[in-house]
Amino acid sequence: MSKAFQSGWLRQRKHEAVKHVSFSIGKGETLGLIGESGCGKSTLSRLMVKLLPFDQGKLFFEDTDITKYTMKQLFPLRTKMQIIFQHPDSALHPRQTILQSLVEPLLLHQITDRKQAIERVMDLLAPVGLNEEILSRYPHQVSGGQIQRVVIARALTLSPRFIVLDEPTSMLDVSVQAQVIDVLKTIQKQFDLTYLFISHDLDLVAHVSDRIAVMCKGEIVELDQSKKVLNEPVHPYSQKLVNAFRGYQTNR
């Protein structure tokens, strides 16, 4: 079984954010997506989980064409695909406790009753590296790294197959980033997840991804094995990106 995504032509206010993009992500794979800010990576990520409608193209999920799915048809699918965003400070409902936010998806989808939902949440705390103390707190009382762990746990409650990670650690400090990436890698193995990992940090993308797609002005200009993109980029834009990154790390 594989996941195939094909999407094209998104027009937003006559500005083409994503153009003729075709690619697929295999089960259990991590596909990295890199590019400058404003290149359309975030738009693409939202298209893939059907948070935005698109103008042209087709989107397959687990061999089903979900391009024309209505909101109602999408509802059960929402448990299978999740998205995690960049900003920890606005990721959770500010007036809900962490526990309320964590059980909400299960209750919304009427998968379990409240008691079972709490049990499920408790089981998920350990894999993401949280402890029970945090459950009664409010988002503003919790650090950014912990919020991202909570958001990951929240996504996991629905037993998803595919998670879009839209720069999940770009607002975190390096040492915290390393911790969160560690969590993401562990749960990927444990729950057999497929990732689309978006970032502008080349080293980070290379570290987590099997393959990397390079995006420039709404188009995917290169897609290959991580090592290849990083070491022998073919497209001039990828070369520019890699060189800028390398230069910036070492040149003095």
Binding site: V174, S175, V176, Q177, A178, Q179, I181, D182, D201, D203, L204, A206, H207, Q249
Partner: peptide
């Protein structure tokens, strides 16, 4: 750091 193994 991502380039240095990312050991937290």
């Amino acid at each position: 750091m991502p380039g240095k193994g990312m050991i937290p």
